[in-house]
Design a protein around this nucleic acid. Structure first.
Lengths: 214, 214
DNA sequence: GTAAAACTACCCCTTTTGGGTTAGATTGCG
DNA sequence: CGCAATCTAACCCAAAAGGGGTAGTTTTAC
């Protein structure tokens, strides 16, 4: 390959995990961690700045989550290979991650040696997926209709945001102040999300939503 | 303290995190990781076998979880100091962990230096709690009363009944048909139960109720 | 580039909700 | 028995919610 070590950037809000990962990577000649970020926003800046060969991105981060970070990176024209790293063993996020431009999806509880191997493969330009994940992907692709299709996906960001506030019991007026838009606009969004969800009132929406993330 | 290093056992199903933690601990003179376990069952055996000075126990493990492992260890007569390590930032598990004999409760996203410091303190026999956790504990201990004293008890049967229907998303009219009374009467009950619960809308009531029987 | 979608905001209107009051019927308790 | 609480129901009224429309701006997609 090249004569210089491949540059890797780590993005994870757990310092411990970064430490472990960094140490693991340092064991391998030809791989070098050039940056560590603890959040998505920081990662966006550093990614453009450094243009690393590989970005290892935690999926479950506070603030901007991994998927959002991934999406924005690709929007910003980041061409680095990006591998998602996550705790969850069987997640619907796999599909989203892949379609949003991820080059791999690995699990944190993998065997370190295997993980290192996969990282190396990712650097080499291959797509890497945990075994548990390939099944999820397979089944997801097997039924293109509605495996992961929560009704939530039919909503726009704003609608989803407002739905969450409704699920906290807020009125349109309060939501309007919260989001700094007019309450008339909030009503529009509520109207739309109710229609999309096939519900007849904000109470139904609230109940549905609260039961949703159970 | 003693002239030999304190023995520490790590229990976590994420190899990477164990690696990071082990490396972190190795930085400190006087601390030594003598065992690593990836699951609770294994941990039970090794704990009795080794009787380490400190056991760092992951709360969120597959199979036997951290709390169960903790409980069984104490049942088995393990006297090692045990510190729980977890991802969750504000968990009700804190109380359970402490009452079940944990000597500390730390968060995985703590600053490594601070974490190391806390581990040292745990070895020294002190109880260690993350800052975010102390608040949870405090509030939990502040109201040891109210075990059965739910606000629900302040409601009449009819009001409670109607509240439950509201929590299903029903409108006053639907509830009226359901209970075979006039919708005007339903409004009266709703009015009263809102006042008793200190809520401002049926949406708040619905959300409160749904979260109640969680 | 254009086209589509999303977000914003207003208009109209009806229905629903919440709060206040009064009041009859029923039930439970001392 | 009387009295309090509950359940029922009606009245009025203001506020909120929901459904329809139009329309301008921005973002996104192709």
């Amino acid at each position: 390959m090249s004569d210089t070590a491949a540059s890797i950037m780590l993005v994870d809000d757990h310092p411990l995990l970064r430490k472990g990962l960094k140490q693991l990577i340092s064991l391998e000649d030809g791989l070098e961690v050039v940056a560590e970020c603890s959040n998505g926003a920081d990662a966006l800046v550093r990614a453009e700045e450094l243009d690393p060969d590989l970005i290892i991105l935690d999926l479950n981060m506070q603030g901007m989550d991994g998927l959002e970070t991934l999406k924005r990176m690709r929007d910003n024209g980041v061409t680095s290979r990006i591998v998602m790293l996550t705790v969850s063993d069987a997640d619907e996020d796999v599909v989203t991650a892949i379609t949003n431009g991820a080059d791999g999806y690995l699990l944190k509880d993998m065997d370190p040696e295997l993980l290192l191997e996969q990282i190396q493969r990712a650097v080499d330009g291959k797509m890497v997926l945990s075994e548990a994940i390939t099944e999820v992907l397979a089944t997801a692709l097997r039924r293109p209709s509605a495996p992961t299709a929560s009704k939530l996906d039919g909503l726009t960001n704003r609608e989803r945001e407002i739905l969450e506030l409704i699920a906290k019991g807020m009125s349109n007026k309060v939501i309007a102040r919260e989001l700094d838009i007019s309450d008339g606009t909030v009503k529009v969004h509520v109207k739309h999300l109710l229609k999309k969800l096939g519900l007849r009132s904000r109470v139904e929406a609230a109940v549905w939503m609260v039961n949703q993330d159970t």
